[in-house]
């Protein structure tokens, strides 16, 4: 049984101004996040994945946002800043990439956690806030919370700082948690701990999670659903198993076969030709991935690529996936997902 829909994004476009002209970094993106579900948005730099997250949080002060962002039915895109401020940090919150810079260096940990409590619970007393902050620090696995609360960020390790950021994010039991590359800056053993912690908290709070990452390993560990983004668009979306076991879009398949030391990779890693086009030079018509797979016939692409439902709840953009093969491929099934048996 599917959980209740929490966030529904309809045709979101976020554009930025470059030399008098607006360019869409997020282009017609539609997504759904359910309660107690992890939706991973995967892509490389320039794919628009972080811009999507920042648009939901309303943190782009210069971008132009079109489309609907419905959080429990309320359209965030239409809210004023002060209305957004009642929601940010309460109904939805964010975990950031770099725990070194995401905390104010001149403020005690307790004050930084206390701030998010103060902003959304006007009747909480100072002592109550402090006690609750200590409880939160304990909740995210900080060993001596009553000591940590009076410390400054520079006194903590990277993993501990990320725990503090998570404590801030969950302070008001948000419905929606957005994690932007939460483990990229961390060591691998710390990464594992943080991922486990996030999973646990999500179950406790019954929250929906949007996990923004470029790390397919993290996706495989965490996600329920996956949206793969390329050049501002979603190119493939499905449940996590389909994405890893039966990937369809050429970009998804290329990405999977370029990660080293996995079942997808051969001795030679797959290299995607060319580079991600800059925002200004994105091809705005036709298949955006076309120029990166020049050996595929032009006719294989659609003129106006749309998402096709290739099997239940599995969407792929453009028709080129039907004709795609790797240039050095001699066997049809090579790199075509995990080989069975």
């Amino acid at each position: 049984m599917l959980n209740q829909e929490l966030l529904k994004i309809n045709n979101l476009s976020t554009s930025f101004q470059i030399d008098e002209e607006y360019y869409a970094a997020v282009d017609d993106v539609s997504l759904t996040v359910r309660e107690n579900e992890v939706l991973a948005i995967v892509g490389e730099s320039g794919s628009g994945k972080s811009a999507t997250a920042f648009s939901i949080m309303g943190l782009h002060n210069r971008g132009k946002i079109e489309g609907e962002i419905l959080l429990q039915g309320q359209d965030l895109a239409k809210l004023s800043t002060s209305e957004m401020n009642k929601i940010r940090g309460k109904d939805m919150s964010m975990i950031f990439q770099d725990p070194l810079t995401a905390l104010n260096p001149l403020m005690e940990i307790g004050v930084q956690i206390g701030e998010v409590l103060l902003l959304h619970n006007k009747n909480m007393s100072k002592t109550e806030r402090r006690n609750y902050a200590i409880e939160l620090l304990g909740r995210v696995g900080i060993p001596r919370p009553e000591r940590t609360i009076d410390q400054f960020p520079h006194e903590l390790s990277g993993g501990m700082r990320q725990r503090v950021i998570i404590a801030i994010a969950i302070a008001n039991q948000p419905k929606l948690l957005i994690a932007d590359e939460p483990t990229t800056a961390l060591d691998v053993t710390i990464q594992a701990q943080i991922l486990d912690l996030m999973q646990e908290l999500k179950d406790d709070l019954n929250s929906g999670v949007i996990l923004i990452t470029h790390d397919l390993g993290v996706v495989a560990e965490m996600a329920d659903r996956v949206a793969v983004m390329y050049a501002g668009q979603i190119v493939e979306e499905s449940d996590v198993e389909s994405i890893f076991v039966n990937p369809q879009h050429p970009y998804t398949r290329s990405l999977l076969s370029s990660i080293p030391a996995t079942d997808y990779a051969q001795d030679r890693l797959h290299v995607i030709q060319g580079i991600v086009p800059s925002l200004k030079h994105l091809p705005r018509t036709g298949c955006r991935f076309k120029e990166r797979i020049p050996w595929i016939d032009d006719d294989a692409h659609e003129d106006h690529p749309v998402l096709h439902e290739v099997s239940e709840d599995h969407f792929v953009r453009c028709t080129c996936y039907q004709h795609f093969y790797f240039p050095d491929e001699n066997k049809e099934d090579q790199a075509n997902g995990v080989t069975e048996g």
């Binding site: 990464q191 594992a192 486990d196 390993g217 495989a220 996590v240 890893f244 076991v245």
Partner: peptide, 20 residues
């Protein structure tokens, strides 16, 4: 360290988490 490497097959997720 080896156990902390994420497994790229989501079907092994539970097993891997337990192992970890």
């Amino acid at each position: 360290l080896v156990a902390a490497i994420p497994d790229v097959d989501p079907r092994n997720r539970e097993k891997h988490r337990e192992f970890r």
